[in-house]
């Protein structure tokens, strides 16, 4: 299975970040989440970034991009760096349902067959 992001459904509410962090650390904050909203606010350009086992998924509005480890992410400023240090997404294997999917109010996130 893998986590799919239908980027245009995203409204940038960020609750998925807090839900993922809750899965990892059992507290409420976005600090330890495997996914993070990237946003250039004044251009209204936004989408989720997911730290995965082997790479980084950038769910850009114009389409997904997979960035191999160690490669520079184009257009992502210093603010997006913390995602690289985070624990990778473990697909919530020990939970009944992935926390981010469960929390997302728009159906932007889902689990699909890989």
């Amino acid at each position: 299975m893998e986590l799919a992001v239908e980027s245009l459904k995203c409204i940038g509410c960020r609750v998925c970040e807090y839900a993922c962090n809750y899965h990892h650390d059992m507290d409420c904050s976005p600090n330890g989440a495997s996914l993070m909203l990237h946003r250039t606010e004044k251009r209204n350009y936004f989408g989720m970034m997911v730290k995965r086992e082997k790479d980084l998924l950038l769910a850009r509005p114009e389409g997904p991009e997979v960035v191999p480890p160690g490669e520079q992410v184009e257009g992502a400023g210093a603010s997006s760096k913390p995602i690289l240090m985070r624990a990778p997404c473990d697909l919530c294997e020990d939970e009944d349902e992935p926390f981010c999917v469960k929390a997302c109010p728009t159906g932007c996130l889902s689990m699909v067959e890989s």
Binding site: I11, C13, N44, F46, P61, P105
Partner: peptide, 29 residues
């Protein structure tokens, strides 16, 4: 352009208007 929510709101009560770009723009301006 696209609607945007405040923190943890299921209703995106904010709406972005494109002035100097086509509203359908998906790429970063």
């Amino acid at each position: 352009h696209r609607h945007v929510a405040s923190f943890n709101c299921a209703y995106a009560a904010n709406t972005f208007l494109m002035i100097d770009e086509p509203p359908g723009l998906l790429k970063e301006s």
